[in-house]
Simulated assay, not measured.
Amino acid sequence: MDLGLLDQARAQGGVLTTGQAGWHGVTPRGLTRLVNAGELVRVRKGAFVLAGAWTAAKPVERLALRTRAVMAGRAGAVAAGECAVALHGLPLWGVPLERVLLHGDVTRTRSRSGLTVIPQLSTVGAVSSETGVLAVTSAYAVVQLCTAHGHRAALIALDAALHSRRVVLSEVVRAAACLSLSGSDLWEVEQMVRLADPSCESVGESRTRLLLHDLGYAARSQVALSDAHGFVARVDFLVEDRVVVEFDGLMKYDGFEGRAALAAEKRREDRLRSMGFVVVRLVWSDLEHPERVAALMNRAVAQIRRTGAERSAS
């Protein structure tokens, strides 16, 4: 690949356009050869990503790369919604990752070949360049995500933004007010704000908390538990004061370090049980089966209540 073109692509976060290639003397046919040789990936007509960057990227990171590539050929465009969320480095869950959504110089929404362009925002402070390209702020991005895909999907990004202190909840509320939402859009945002929890440290924890809420359980996040000898553990969730719910997203216990971690986790759980807690451990697959989680929780709560009744009787 032409070194000048390679340097330009790297300076733009690993992306380039057909027009930029032409400035370096690389024709459309030359770009096709680079794609066939595995040096470039075509992510949309006229938009390319360096193959190394694309291969190394996770799905949400690929959306960010695709967005950068498309924006490189559209002066004045502003990333919006899930694309802005991806550019801000926030997680996405339950959202299609193929479409590029931009604010542009249009009077009505236009969609074509995986690109949707919506009218520009007139709100002062709604757009920033902190991602290296123009994008709506994290607060506006999660509100747009919420109105497009619902509060469940948006809550994942909002929890992460709050936990990393990229936004505060009042900024999200202000963004929603500036967008003059009404009807179902307003209801979705109100639900997102009500359920947000900056204590959640991962996508799995946010999804676990949301599932527990759907099952009718009020869960407190990141609760520190101690006994007469001092601190025992900080647990992901505490339900009804005696049911500990832990989300295990790794499940990697191979090798010496893995076995040591497993042994330490067992000692931790044994100590919690000796204090009268029931421990429910969930993994990714459990989150796809609410009925399974409901059964585990029902048994745990029943056990706690039965033990409490027996103590009262004695």
Rank of each mutant, 00 (worst) to 15 (best):
L3G: 00
D7Q: 12
Q8D: 13
A9P: 14
R10P: 06
A11I: 09
V15E: 05
T17E: 04
G19R: 14
V26E: 05
T27Y: 06
T32S: 13
G38P: 14
L50H: 04
A51D: 10
A53F: 05
G73W: 02
R74E: 08
V78A: 10
E82F: 06
E82T: 15
C83P: 14
C83Y: 08
H88K: 00
L92I: 10
W93Q: 15
L97M: 13
L101K: 02
L102D: 03
V106L: 08
R112C: 06
G114S: 09
S122D: 10
S122P: 06
G125T: 02
G125E: 02
A126V: 08
A126C: 08
A126T: 03
S129I: 08
E130L: 09
L134V: 07
A135P: 14
S138I: 01
S138R: 15
A141Y: 05
V143Y: 04
Q144G: 05
G150A: 11
V167N: 09
L169R: 13
E171T: 15
V172Y: 00
V172G: 07
A175Y: 00
L195A: 15
A196H: 10
D197W: 08
E201A: 15
L211S: 03
A218R: 12
A218Q: 09
V223G: 01
A224R: 00
D227N: 13
A233N: 07
D236H: 06
D236P: 07
D236C: 10
E240F: 00
D248L: 06
D254V: 06
L262F: 13
M275K: 02
V278W: 02
E288L: 12
R306A: 15
S312A: 14
